[in-house]
Structure formats: structure tokens, C-alpha cells
């Protein structure tokens, strides 16, 4: 790695693409041209009988075994050295933890600030530690040619550096269920000063403590499917849920229940038991402690 200027992941990967694409293009054009030429030149209308009975040629076989072998070994080597750039995180990298859950991202910084978008300073390499709370997700930044799976129970990481300010797509690349394609965010690359200002603002914002129930909903990823503002998502909205009369299916039979504490608790612990009409049976059961459940129910009571 050049100590004077950091090589970005994009700069490491793109030449490998160019090399392999170039070689493939030459091969493809060669094969196609030979095929077309032979088909035209030796078409039965011009060549009523085959003029060769050759059943093979040892030297040709050797040539087209050895040359492709050398070519693919070059591709292998080039591909491997580019991959090493992706794996060797620069020492001065800033650490961020990306937490993935069905179906949202949250990014937390060393000072405790969390954000649904990944804010980074321009020119500073960022090491992203990847944590999953449920199933396997994929952390994918097309602009930086970076991808790494986010596997529950594993400590995966990735790194990148944004050399220009801007907003870059961040996708979940490993299929994770109903709203997989909605599990997208952005990398917001800000000039160093603007990034520092953003961080200051977020830190002060942290002091206004949210309701613990809301924090739990955010922590367990409930808000990925259940909105707090009445808008429709994969699951029913939580706005005004307390005391609402809900049509549910219990063991296949429809009935109407009032959303009380018992109902809300059961819906979290055993979501399939009373399924709200019109919604798919896809919510996984959550195992929460009693005080956590109490805090959530108390918060939902007040969510008008």
C-alpha cells in the first residue's frame, strides 16, 4: 500500500475488472469470429463434402490447454491481490458498528451516537464491524466495490474510504425475507468539518432520553415493519393501538379482540397465535424479559 496516499477499495478492484473483462472480450470475439467464419466458409452450399478427416492434433490441444491455464492463473493472482486490499484495514481507520436486523440498519460510533445512515468523513478510512441480530444480511456498497455478509454470531468486518463527498447507496445483499429490498440506507460522506459538526449535534441530541419502550422497539427492529405514525408497512401500525378493536384469526377462525395488555404481550411472544386480518404470518416470535414487555406496553398505551 502506498504510504503517501491511501489506495481506495475502488482503485484496487476496478483494474482487476478491466483485466478480466479485456481478456474475456478477446476470447469471446475470437471464438465467435472463428465460428462465424467456419459456418460461412464451410457451409454445405460451398463445401458439399468435408475436406478434412482430422480427429485431433496433439500440439493444438497442448497449446489451448497451456495458454488458458496461464491466463486464468494470472486472473487468479490478480484477483487475489485485489481481495487482499479489501481485507487489510488501514491502521488509522475509524470504527463504526453496523447492526443489521429484519429489515433496517443502524450504525453506532465509538462515542455511543447511533444513526440510521452511515455518516463518514471524506478521506478517512472507515472500518465497519458487522453485527446481525437475527438472520444473515449483506453489507453492500456498490460505489466502493465492498460487500461482506452480516452473520449472526460471527465477527465480520469491511472497510472503505470515501474520497469524494456525496451520498452513496448501501444495500442489504443477502436475502433476508419480506422487506429485503427495502433494507437499504446510504453512506453520507461529509467533509471533515461538517462530519464533526454532525457528530456534535447528534451527541447533544442523545441527552433528550427517548422513552425506554421506544428504545426497545428500535433495538429489536420492530419499527422496520410497524410504524409509529399510522403509515402502513409490512405489519399493522402501532399508532393508537391501545384499546383498538382488532379482527384477528385464531386457529383459522376470525374473531374481534380489544388490544389490551394480554393481547399485546401475546402478539410479541407468539405472533402467530392471533394473526391480524390482512397481514401475512411472517413475524418471528420474540423472547423478551418481563420488564421489557412492561416498558413496551406502557409506551404503546401512550402512543396516540
Amino acid at each position: 500500500m502506498n504510504p503517501a496516499r491511501l489506495m481506495t477499495t475502488t482503485e484496487a478492484i476496478d483494474p482487476v475488472f478491466m483485466f478480466i473483462f479485456g481478456a474475456c472480450l478477446v476470447l469471446l470475439i475470437g471464438i465467435t469470429a472463428a465460428m462465424l467464419y467456419f459456418v460461412v466458409r464451410y457451409h454445405r452450399s460451398k463445401a458439399p463434402e468435408a475436406t478434412s478427416k482430422a480427429e485431433g492434433n496433439l500440439w493444438l490441444e497442448i497449446i489451448w490447454t497451456v495458454l488458458p491455464t496461464m491466463l486464468v492463473l494470472a486472473m487468479f493472482y490478480y484477483g487475489w491481490s485485489g481481495y487482499l486490499t479489501l481485507r487489510n484495514v488501514p491502521e488509522e481507520a475509524m470504527e463504526v458498528t453496523a447492526t443489521a436486523r429484519m429489515w433496517s440498519w443502524s450504525f453506532s460510533y465509538a462515542n455511543g451516537v447511533t444513526s440510521p445512515k452511515l455518516y463518514v468523513p471524506v478521506g478517512r478510512p472507515v472500518r465497519v464491524n458487522l453485527v446481525s441480530q437475527d438472520v444473515i444480511h449483506g453489507f453492500f456498497l456498490p460505489a466502493f466495490r465492498v460487500k461482506r455478509d452480516v452473520v449472526p454470531g460471527m465477527k465480520n468486518h469491511a472497510w472503505f474510504v470515501a474520497s469524494k463527498a456525496g451520498s452513496y447507496d448501501l444495500f442489504c445483499s443477502q436475502y433476508c425475507g419480506t422487506s429485503h429490498s427495502a433494507m437499504i440506507s446510504t453512506v453520507e460522506a461529509l467533509p471533515e468539518a461538517e462530519f464533526a459538526a454532525w457528530m456534535e449535534h447528534e451527541k447533544s441530541g442523545e441527552e433528550q432520553k427517548e422513552h425506554p419502550g421506544h428504545e426497545l422497539l428500535e433495538k429489536h427492529g420492530c419499527l422496520g415493519c410497524h410504524s409509529e405514525d399510522g403509515s402502513a408497512r409490512v405489519g399493522p401500525t402501532l399508532k393508537g393501538i391501545w384499546g383498538r378493536s382488532v379482527t384477528v384469526e385464531t386457529n383459522g377462525a376470525g374473531r374481534v379482540v380489544i388490544a389490551d395488555e394480554a393481547y399485546l404481550r401475546r402478539s410479541i411472544l407468539e405472533p402467530g397465535a392471533d394473526l391480524v386480518k390482512g397481514f401475512p404470518p411472517i413475524m418471528p416470535p420474540f423472547t423478551l424479559k418481563d420488564d421489557e414487555l412492561r416498558a413496551i406496553v406502557q409506551y404503546l398505551r401512550g402512543l396516540k
Partner: peptide, 21 residues
């Protein structure tokens, strides 16, 4: 051939990372 050659992109570790999934 097109399929096989694009497979070379997927076989090389560096380029696979970008186009995987």
C-alpha cells in the same frame, strides 16, 4: 462461452465481492 467467461469474474476473489449476490 458468455456464461463461462462471466464466471471468471465470479471466480476472481476481488471482482466476485462486488458482483456477488
Amino acid at each position: 462461452s458468455i456464461g463461462g467467461l462471466s464466471g471468471l469474474i465470479l471466480g476472481a476473489a476481488a471482482t466476485d465481492v462486488h458482483v456477488h449476490d
